[in-house]
């Protein structure tokens, strides 16, 4: 809710007044966090309230009369009953809510999309400010049909179960087909986070086998034992009876970066630097994705830090001869092509 316009400030004030009107009041810092602005902005907003009263004559305060402690970090406002509520959802907030509900049905199958649709319609009717002032503009629900919000079945099933397991802090077991392997593995995991990156979903968690399932491993937020599994390579997933404790300070953002699920988690894989040369024909796509070294022929060269040999082979093969791996990478590609 950033913004310096009067409209943006009024929006904030219509939230600040009821928030500070709650029992015990609130603090400037809390409001700043809730509204996504800095404390100085809240301070300026509150000054408008004080300034407003200075311009009014006795008896002109209308419905809104503000009394309270406007000093220090603490803010308490004695507002009349109606102003103890924030405004209803405006059109854009309602649209965000409907998109959120739609996103929820895409991500998780329960409750059923039809029930979520019914909830959306109800919330729209009961919480919103009513019709748009411009009748030519569609209402959010008209602009956002929920009818086709059917979840992609397979990944949604796995995500649902993994998220259920995370909420209940229960382990998961599943069968997994690792890229380049011909055996399906049975895996067990403490699920921490579901990650979406490069167009694919991943399940990130700790392999209790690596930590020996020892109780002291709980609460450890290091990358030790962390594993990432592509959801579309998980054949089935069950929530196990055994529990686990998610490290409270665990934050996947601290170990993932550059838009990729890439960390040194698998002891079987060593990080290797592999140079790959890309032809001028595909160079512009590569420049968009990686830091490149320009070559004289118009092509580019990238040195990839590779944790998975299979990733490199698939990456090179997809360019059908327009990408050429060097160093150990060339041998990996040759070996992958042997007997094929």
């Amino acid at each position: 809710m950033k913004g310096k316009t009067a409209a943006a400030q009024l929006r904030r004030l219509l939230y600040i007044i009821p928030a500070a009107g709650r029992e015990g009041g609130t603090s400037y810092s809390e409001l700043a966090e809730e509204l996504g602005v800095d404390v100085a902005t809240i301070d300026r907003d509150v000054r408008v309230l004080a300034e407003r009263e200075a311009h009014l004559r006795a008896g002109e305060l209308g419905l809104l009369q503000i009394q309270g402690d406007l000093t220090g970090d603490h803010l308490a406002i004695d507002a009349p009953a109606a102003f103890s509520r924030p405004p209803r959802l405006n059109r854009e907030e309602l649209l965000a809510l409907l998109l959120g509900l739609r996103s929820r049905t895409l991500l998780r199958r329960h409750p059923a999309p039809r029930q979520v649709e019914a909830l959306a319609r109800r919330l729209e009717e009961e919480l919103s400010m009513g019709p748009s002032p411009d009748e030519s503009e569609p209402e959010p629900s008209q602009a956002l049909p929920l009818e086709d919000a059917s979840p992609p079945l397979t990944d949604a099933v796995v995500r649902d179960r993994a998220l259920d397991a995370m909420e209940m802090e229960r382990q998961v077991t599943f069968r997994y087909l690792k890229p380049g392997k011909r055996e399906v593995e049975d895996r067990r995991l403490h699920p921490f986070t579901v990650v979406h990156a490069e167009g694919a979903w991943y399940l990130l968690g700790r392999d209790p086998g690596v930590m020996g399932g020892a109780p002291e491993s709980d609460g450890d937020s290091s990358v030790e034992g962390l594993r990432a599994f592509r959801l579309d390579r998980i054949l089935d997933l069950e929530v196990a009876e055994e529990g686990f404790r998610r490290p409270p300070e665990f934050d996947a953002r601290s170990i993932l970066g550059e838009g990729r699920v890439f960390f040194r988690g698998d002891p079987e894989e060593e990080l290797t630097s592999v140079p790959v040369r890309y032809s001028p024909r595909i160079a512009r796509w590569i420049r968009e994705r990686f830091d490149c070294e320009e070559l004289e022929d118009g092509g580019v060269r990238v040195v990839h830090r590779v944790a998975s040999r299979d990733w490199l082979v698939r990456h090179v093969l997809q360019y059908a001869g327009e990408a050429v791996a060097g160093g150990v990478g060339a041998r990996w590609v040759r070996e992958a092509l042997e007997g094929w």
Binding site: M1, K2, R85, P87, L89, E93, A96, G100
Partner: peptide
């Protein structure tokens, strides 16, 4: 619509 979504979230949990 992130700020609007955050705002709707605050109102729903008010």
């Amino acid at each position: 619509l992130r700020s609007q979504a955050r705002s709707a979230l605050r109102k729903l949990t008010f």
